[in-house]
C-alpha cells in the first residue's frame, strides 16, 4: 500500500515536510514517494498528508493508480469548462 506522485507535480515542496514516514524526496524531475516507506499515513493521520495539501489535481495517485484529487476537485473549475476554454485559447 503506497501512494505515488506523477509528472504533473509542480515541485512546490508542500508535501515533503508533512510526510510522517519521510517517504517523500525530490526526484530528478519531480517529487517522488518511496513506496516501501509510505504508509498512506495510516496510524498517524486520518487523511494522507501529501494528498491533503497538494494543489495539483491528479498529481497524487492512490495504490490502485486512481487520482486522489480528480479534475475539478481542488480548483472548483468544472472539467468540461476547462477543456472548452483551453480549446478556445488554442484556436486563437
Amino acid at each position: 500500500m503506497a501512494l505515488s506522485i506523477i509528472e504533473s507535480c509542480v515541485n512546490c515542496y508542500a508535501c515533503e515536510p508533512l510526510c510522517p514516514s519521510d517517504a517523500i524526496s525530490m526526484g530528478e524531475r519531480h517529487f517522488r514517494i518511496d513506496a516501501k516507506a509510505c504508509t498512506e499515513c495510516d496510524g498517524d493521520y486520518a487523511d494522507p498528508q501529501c494528498a491533503s495539501i497538494c494543489p495539483i489535481e491528479g498529481a497524487i495517485l492512490d495504490a490502485s493508480g486512481q487520482a486522489i484529487n480528480p479534475p475539478g476537485s481542488l480548483t472548483g473549475i468544472p472539467p468540461h469548462r476547462l477543456d472548452a476554454v483551453e480549446a478556445e485559447i488554442r484556436a486563437r
Binding site: C12, A14, P55, L74
Partner: peptide, 14 residues
C-alpha cells in the same frame, strides 16, 4: 517559498 497552505481562486499553482 514555493509551498502554499491555501488555494485562492485568482491563483494557478502551475
Amino acid at each position: 517559498a514555493p509551498a502554499c497552505n491555501i488555494q485562492c481562486h485568482y491563483c494557478n499553482r502551475k
